[in-house]
Computed example of a mutant assay.
Amino acid sequence: MKKVILDVDTGIDDAYAIIYAIESKQLDLLGITGVNGNVPIDYVMKNTKKILKLIGNEEVKAYRGASLPLLTEPNHEFRVHGKDGIGDALDHITVDDEESDIFAPDFMIEQAKKHKGDITFIMVGPLTNLALALRKEPRLAEWVSEVVIMGGLVTKAGMGNKLPNAEFNIFADAEAAKIVFHSGLSLKLVGLDVTHKTFLTRERMEELKGTKYYDFIVESSEVFRGFSKQKYGIDGCALHDPLTIGVAIDSSIVQTEKHFVEVETQSELNYGQTICDFRNIWKQEPNMEVCLDVENEKFVTMFIDTLKQA
């Protein structure tokens, strides 16, 4: 079973990703690391612990990570995720404030060293924690088997969700993304242009009726679905982060190609843009696998079936 660390900025789709990762029974989840992103780090930690309590798996520990991006001011997405980050759907669940003393980047280094060549990092938030870990221990590039990243936008210019050409996770800390992209790690990029094909519609949510997660999925997604209806005319929520879990479990659901991808950190218009050199104009060796397409209906069904069996 693949050993993984899941790095989150727990908003709604992060919550679904945590549920999917644990309920799939196909990943050995060593721990969850939290990072500032969709919501501030205090919310991230509280939301993560609430989700673990909802699942009934509080044995998995959450580790507090970066509360700020490396250089820029923090950005949050309450308009998509609601005022608490998970659509106020778990107000009835209380969690304590107890946390590990281990800083998330240090936990990543510790586990990578312990499981050299046999650990995968799944990153579904800004890449600040991993960048900090790499700055402290560059040998991570040798120790980690693969890093699967939800981030970026490579084939659909103008279709970003933070700037026209920028996806939120990369925009939230583009300097961190640049460090990761140039680290020598084995990277797989699951971008917005692919994740946006994986909508869990309100209609398909009804397939979960009578199951453990139905109420949470419907209630938590209300704000997200309202945003999607306004922006895309779809009553549903894209499974951005759960798809990244799906790729870590079964990469055959996506089509990938190896390319060199750079991150823009200077332009006001394009800060956080992920630029994929499809034609090798820069004459650089590929630094990652880029996801270009997904069997979207197959994946959404996989996601629903996993939650049904919980």
Rank of each mutant, 00 (worst) to 15 (best):
K49D: 00
G160R: 04
N47K: 04
K113H: 15
D42F: 15
T201F: 12
A17Y: 05
P164D: 08
E77F: 12
G246F: 02
G85C: 05
D118L: 13
G191Y: 04
L127W: 14
L185I: 01
D96G: 12
P74T: 08
M45T: 06
A104T: 11
I234M: 04
I19Y: 02
R279D: 15
E137P: 01
I122G: 04
G85H: 06
T274H: 07
V35P: 09
V223R: 05
L29F: 03
E77R: 10
G125H: 02
V124Q: 09
N129K: 01
L243Y: 01
I22S: 06
E98M: 14
N296F: 14
D106V: 02
K308C: 07
I55S: 02
A157W: 15
P74I: 02
K229D: 13
N296H: 10
V148R: 10
A176G: 08
I22D: 03
K3N: 03
E142M: 15
S186L: 07
T244L: 11
V190G: 09
D88Y: 10
V39C: 04
L71T: 13
C276M: 02
T301G: 06
L208H: 00
M1F: 10
L52P: 03
R64S: 03
L52S: 02
L30C: 04
T244V: 08
D9A: 08
F107A: 03
D250H: 12
M205R: 02
N165Q: 10
T195S: 01
Y232R: 12
V35I: 14
I275D: 08
L6M: 07
I22L: 10
D173E: 07
A238Q: 08
Q26A: 14
T128N: 01
E58C: 06
S183M: 07
D277M: 03
V223S: 02
V300K: 00
A66C: 14
H259S: 05
V294H: 00
K53F: 02
G34D: 05
D9H: 11
K178V: 00
A248Q: 04
V39T: 00
R225E: 04
Y63G: 00
V290H: 06
N129L: 05
V44M: 12
Q273P: 00
